[in-house]
Amino acid sequence: MRKTKFLAPLLLACGLFSNNASANSGSELSSDVITGVVPIGAFAYAYFTDDEEGQKQWLRNTLANQLIITSARVAFNPSLGKRPNGGKYGFPSGHVGFVTSGASFLQERYGWKLGVPAYMLSAYVAAQRVRDDHHHWRDVIASGVLSFGIAKLFVTPQGATYVAPAIGPDFIGMRWERSF
C-alpha cells in the first residue's frame, strides 16, 4: 500500500489546528493542540500500522462526527448556543467533539490500552473549555456523548469476532463472524 493515499486529510487537519492554536496562549494553547493531536494521532496509528480499513473508518467517523456536531451547533444556537463568555454556537462543543471522536476511534478500533489515555486527554480538553468560559458543562458532555455514539456506529474493532444466535423459520443456530 502506498503511504501517501490518506495523507491529505491528515495534512489538512494539521494546518487547520496550527492556525487555530497560534491565536491562543498558555493552557488554552495546550487544549487546542491536544484537540488536534488525539484524532490525528489516531489516524497516524492506523496509517503506520497499515490498517487501511481503520483509515477508512477514521475518515468516515470523523466526517460524520463533524457533520453532526456542526449541525447540532447551528440547530441549537438560538436556545442553548450562548456561551458563558457571551459567544455564539456553544452547544455542543466542537473542540470536545473532535478530540473525543479520535479517542472513541482508538478505543473502538484498537481497545482500551489506547482508548483510556485518549479519553483522559479528551477530559482535559473538556475541563479546560469549561474553565476558560468557552462552554458550559452540558456543552462538553453532549459533545462527548455524541462522539462516542457516532464511533459506535462507524468503527468496528480490529480483528473482532462476533457470535450471535440465528433464528429463522426453518432453523435455529449460531452465526460466527470474524473481521480481518
Rank of each mutant, 00 (worst) to 15 (best):
G90T: 11
V163H: 13
A21I: 04
D170M: 13
T100E: 06
T100M: 10
R175H: 15
F43N: 03
N61I: 01
E52Q: 10
V140M: 05
V130N: 06
A42N: 05
F105W: 09
L16Q: 12
G111F: 13
R83E: 11
D170H: 12
L29I: 02
E53W: 10
G41Y: 07
T4K: 12
G173T: 12
D51L: 10
S30L: 06
M1T: 15
D170V: 13
A166N: 14
A64D: 14
R175Q: 15
L63Y: 14
Q107N: 11
I34K: 02
G97Y: 02
L7F: 08
N20E: 11
F98Y: 08
A142M: 06
T62F: 04
Y89M: 06
G86P: 15
A23Q: 06
L106A: 04
V116R: 08
T35V: 09
F105Y: 11
V116Y: 04
D170F: 08
R109F: 15
P92L: 10
S25T: 07
I150W: 08
R175Y: 13
L59F: 11
L16K: 02
T49S: 11
Q57H: 06
R138L: 10
L80W: 11
V33K: 02
L80R: 05
M120V: 13
A44W: 09
L106I: 04
I34S: 03
V38T: 06
I141S: 09
A166D: 15
Y119W: 05
G54E: 03
P84N: 11
E177T: 14
G15Q: 08
S104F: 07
F43I: 04
S30C: 03
P157K: 05
A75G: 02
V33G: 00
S147E: 04
D139Y: 05
Y110G: 08
R178D: 10
E53H: 07
A72E: 12
G149F: 10
S93E: 09
L59E: 00
S122Q: 05
S104W: 05
Y124V: 00
S93M: 08
V163L: 13
I69E: 01
E177V: 14
S179I: 14
K113V: 05
